[in-house]
Structures are given as C-alpha cells and as structure tokens.
Nucleic acid binder design. Structure first.
Lengths: 352, 352
DNA sequence: TTGAAAGCGCTAACAG
DNA sequence: CTGTTAGCGCTTTCAA
C-alpha cells in the first residue's frame, strides 16, 4: 500500500532497510540502534542515526508490535465525564504512562452504558494493549474479565476475576471517617450524608467511612440521601436536608454535590456554616473560592495514578510477580469556612 | 512466536488460520467475515463466527495495521489538566471517535512543556495514528508540523503548516462579545476583562470579542488583567479589580477565574451582583449552584468534538477532499444571578 | 463466492 | 560487534 496512493514524486515512508542501505549497515543494526540495544559500535550508531534523520525515518509501530508481541501501550477505561476525579485520574495516568514509555489508549464509559466496563475492556483488548487501567469503576456485578493482561483497578477493591490485578487508591473510607469526625468534633449531634450513586465503589467507601465514624461515637445514623455526583443533584436532593431543622452537619460525597447542597441550604434561608456545616470531598480547584470556601478532603490523584501505573508496568514486565495493592496515598482534610461549631441552643433555631 | 514459546497444553491466542481450520474454510474467508466484507455465503459466515466464538478469536490489530497500512486510530493532544474545557473536549472526542469506529490514543501536554504540542504530535506519529486532534492548543510560534495525516485543530485558527487541517470550535469571540454586551445593556459604563493566558488561542478569542463589543459602543477599554484559568489566579489578580470602585462589571475568560474573582470581591466588602456584576465562560457544572449563581457562556463541547471528528474522519477516508472548517456550533449566554444593572448614582445602590 | 500466494516492516533467534 | 534467516498474523492482489 505504502506509496501506492502517492501520485507524484513524493517518497513514501522510509523503512529500516532504507536507513540500513544509506548507512551502509544491515537492517538488523538499524533495529539495534533504534531500540537502544547494546553491541553497536559508536560509529555504526552514528551513521544509522544520521541516515534515519536524513530520511525522516520512524519505526513502524505496527510491525514492531506484530513481531515482538508487545504493543507498548496500556488501555484506560475511564468514566466519560469531565468530573474532576475521573478526569484528574486520566490525566495522571497518561503522564505516568509516558514516563514509563507506554502509550495510552482510552475508552470511556457512561453510566447506564449497555456495554459498560466489560465492553470497554473488550474494545481495548481488540485494539491491543499490554495492560489495562480501570479508573473508578462501577459495580456491575461480579465481572469475570477474560483478560490475559494485567489490570490495575483504581478506587475499587478489584471486583474482577482476572488473572493479575493490582489495585490503588482504595481507602476513601478513612478520609470519609476523618471528615465525619471533624464535624462531630465541632459539636454536631450527628452528621447527615449526601452520598454518591450506590453502585460506585467510591461512593460506598465514603459512606462506609461516614457510618463507621458515627458508630464509633454511638451517634444515630440518619437516612442517607443519594445524588449522582453533580451539583444539580446535590441541590435537588439537598433541599430536603436543607429544610430539616434537625440537620446541622452534612458530609457530601464530593465537592460538586456539596456546592449544590449549599445552594439549597442558602435558598432555604439557612446559613452555611452558621446553621449548617458542610464538608465535601475531592478539593476541586474552585473549592477554596466558592462562598463559603469549602471544607473538604483532598485526594492526591496524581500520586495514586503514578504509583498504580508503576505497579501495573512492573506486573506487565514481570509476569510472575504477585498481584499487589498500592500503598494508600496521603490524604488530607482541608478545613475552610463551610464548617463551624454546631449552633447552640436546643438544637436548632427554627427558621423558615 | 505464537505457540513457539508455549511448552505445555496452554493454548496461545487463536489466529485466523485456527478459526479457518475449525470452520473448514480458508484463512481469507475468515478475514472476510471478520471485516464484514461481502461475497461470503451465509453458511460460511455462520461457521466462521461459530468457530471464532469457540476459540475466543480476536483479530490481531498490529498485524492488521501492518498489512493494511491503516491503524484505525486517531491521536489526541490534550492539555493535561482536569480543567472543564479540555477534559470535556477529550471525553467528547473519545465518544465521537468510537462512534466512527476509530480508537483513541492520548498524549497530554503541560503548559511550559519543553516538548510542547510538537513533541506530543511526534509521539503520536511514532505510535501510529491515522489522524490527529489538537485540542485547545497554545501558540508556540508558527509550528510546521511535518505530518502526513490529517489534523483537526479545536479552538484555534490552525496555526499549523500541515497538509490537511480542519478546524472546529473557533468563534469564541462572538460569545465573548455577547457576554460583554449583556453587561453593557445592564447599564454598566464599561466592562473589565479578566483574561486567560495570552498564549492560549481561546484566551485571545475571548479578549478580542470583549474588545470588539466595547469598541462598537465607543466605551473605554480598561486595562486587561490576566490569570491562568484557575480560580486561584482569578482570586489573586481579581483583588485589584475588586478594590477599584470604578469596576462594576467584569467579564472573566472562564468560570473558574470568575469564581475566584467573586471571592475577591466579596472579601473586599462589595457585593455580587449589587456592586459588581461578573460573567464567566464555559458553564461548568457547578456554575448554576455557586453563590451567586453565575451568569456565563455555555459551550457545546460535545457538539464541537463531534462535528470536528466527523470532518477529520472524512478527511482521513477521503484524502483528496479539501480541508474544511466546521460550522460554528450554537453557543449560548446563560443569565443567572451574578449580573445585575449597574449601581446607580456615584456610589452604589440596591437593585430591583 | 472462494482460495493461494505474496508481502506489510519489524524483532527474534542464531550464526559469524 | 554484526549479519542472516525466519517468521509475527493479517490484508492484498490475483486466479479459480
């Protein structure tokens, strides 16, 4: 094909034999040079590099993959939204992958996607990847992935029956617990929870952390209200919380919902944090600047992506190594102005 | 390789010859079936599909690419941040690409990246792609991309000297103009501008639109202050604006900076929108829920990505077609509560 | 409608 | 240190 579509004198892409000819070496030597292999004389190396430059030579990746059986690329399954968490993770993964010399293929899923994560993984496998990253997955039932490449699951306890799985970024429960305790320490009788979609592992973790904190202090556990991560949902389902005078402290499963909730509270005529304290989760870039600045939990997405990818690549390149779990990254409660001591008095000053 | 390394009974991945043997047809017929080519009897097709299923057969993409000269994948150069605009575009591109049957490879750049966009493009070309999307690029000087695949540039007037370039999503100036006029219509004497980094085409477009609107009504053009798209920068550089009593209306180049600016205004003891009106750009998901809800310009990222990608694929598959420019997508000014009539009198007064 | 033969451009052994 | 020989698993002719 190459060259066949070119009508004029335009030269089709140079191949390694062309470089070899020009450099006066064998094709194999060109291959050695391009792959930075040892056992090439400095002189030969120089000549090859020169010839390659002159010809604009570029290794053909398809041929390389076919011959070697390795694609040198990893596939990422990411949620197809611009939500801060998934997007940050995706960017972090790409950067980390590039550092390790792997290219990145991406497939996104949407919630309610018929094919779902399994379909995305299939598609990645069709494309050809040496490893797969599943970022912030949803529980779609015990998924038996028939995968022969290592899989990294970020933000979920590896619900996949795949051969070699590494996990990273699990442990949101600890932070959710810290967030809840912060509110309790402020004197609130109990803490309400505005949860994420129950099928998300991330949502479950945070809910568990909240529940644990409450249980540890013997507080009553109010019914959970559930949103879909969006500020809009935080606003909608938050209206009920906002109007309930018993509610003085809420831990929202992410910052977007926290912001929506705050709006609902404000519109209900109550003040944040004077009447209602709110804690978010993620520390999105605007969190420090909204009104009031949001107390929240900061996740080190880059660190999670980086360490997870390092482990994945290790597993790819050392097929016999055991599956591992990345160490939990340092997380941090960022206290700003959306939380304050519980309103004093009989519990709440009724305002309508 | 396949089979050669397998010592025991472990089966290595099935190849098309294996399927052919099982189905009792030639390898070429398997190829025809897998590619949905015509001229295969229904019976043969069925037998092949059956055998493929039984063997868990999967077309080898590397071999396919090598033999056909087409990779069926497109590369995306995206800014490596979770900023709403770039992230939305990336997700939209992936979705659109999948709809057209192309896989997606991603390379991110960071501002101040030594290699920059050119380096990212190189890396994509090394990986092997049939087309390239450059999303929201930065002006790094007239870039002569030595590229032999079609390029789609989103959000910039194609500063690339590449053979076949399509552009999409250019035209922010019109909306920036509408945003500015909205403020002028509200009775503000003039409108200040909190701009994005000057090297971003998106930032320039918005600034031009603002400038045009001002000029058209003969208003004075106040000095521009510049941020880096982040809420933090909006807050920092916004403090000067916030404290200047002459400032009653500001058009910020994106919502994050608008939010940071509002915080600065509030901290300066002035009210939004009573004393200062603020308009953002992007309509990020929290824009409707921050305090006050933000008047902003909504960009249809999905539509831009979708149409741009359609054109790119068309150009890939019809090499002789002319380079085109996607039609400008419908954009929209969303009026919320961060804008109000100019404070009357020499000082400021409450609004309606 | 089907199949045989000939590569695509590279890496993997194995010799020199 | 360098080259030779075989494929990798497909798609592409071209012939039947």
């Amino acid at each position: 094909m190459a060259g066949a579509t070119v009508s004029g004198g335009s030269t089709s892409a140079a191949r390694s034999v062309d470089v070899a000819r020009l450099a006066g070496v064998s094709q194999k030597t060109v291959s050695r040079v391009m792959n930075n292999e040892p056992y090439v004389s400095e002189d030969a190396r120089r000549r090859v590099l020169e010839a390659a430059g002159a010809l604009g030579y570029r290794l053909n990746n398809a041929a390389r993959a076919l011959a070697s059986g390795r694609t040198r690329s990893i596939g990422v399954v990411s949620l197809g939204t611009a939500l801060y968490g998934p997007a940050s993770l995706l960017m972090g993964i790409e950067r980390a992958a590039r550092d390790t010399g792997y290219a990145v293929r991406v497939v996104t899923t949407l919630e309610g996607d018929a094919a779902g994560v399994a379909g995305a993984v299939e598609s990645l496998l069709d494309q050809g990847v040496d490893g797969i990253v599943i970022s912030e997955p949803i529980d779609e039932g015990e998924l038996a992935l028939n995968v022969d490449v290592p899989v990294l699951v970020i933000g979920a306890p590896a619900p996949y029956a795949a051969p070699r799985v590494v996990t990273a970024g699990v442990g949101a429960d600890i932070l959710a617990r810290a967030a809840t305790e912060h509110l309790l320490d402020l004197g609130h009788r109990t803490v309400h929870h505005l949860a994420g979609p129950p099928r998300w592992y991330a949502a479950r973790d945070r809910r568990e952390g909240w529940r644990t904190a409450l249980a540890a202090r013997g507080r009553i556990e109010p019914p959970v209200v559930t949103g879909d991560w969006s500020a809009a949902s935080g606003y909608l389902v938050g209206r009920a919380l906002a109007e309930d005078p018993a509610v003085t402290a809420v831990f929202a499963a992410n910052d977007d919902m926290a912001i929506g909730l705050i709006r609902a509270v404000v519109e209900a005529g109550r003040r944040v944090p004077d009447d209602v304290s709110v804690v978010g989760y993620d520390d999105i870039p605007v969190a420090a600047y909204v009104t009031p600045p949001l107390t929240t939990v900061r996740q080190p997405f880059d660190a999670v992506a980086g360490e997870g990818l390092r482990l994945l690549v290790h597993t790819i390149e050392n097929p016999d190594s055991d599956a591992v779990r990345a160490s939990d990254p340092p997380v941090e409660l960022v206290i700003r102005a959306s939380t304050a001591p519980a309103p004093s008095g009989p519990a709440q000053a009724p305002r309508t």
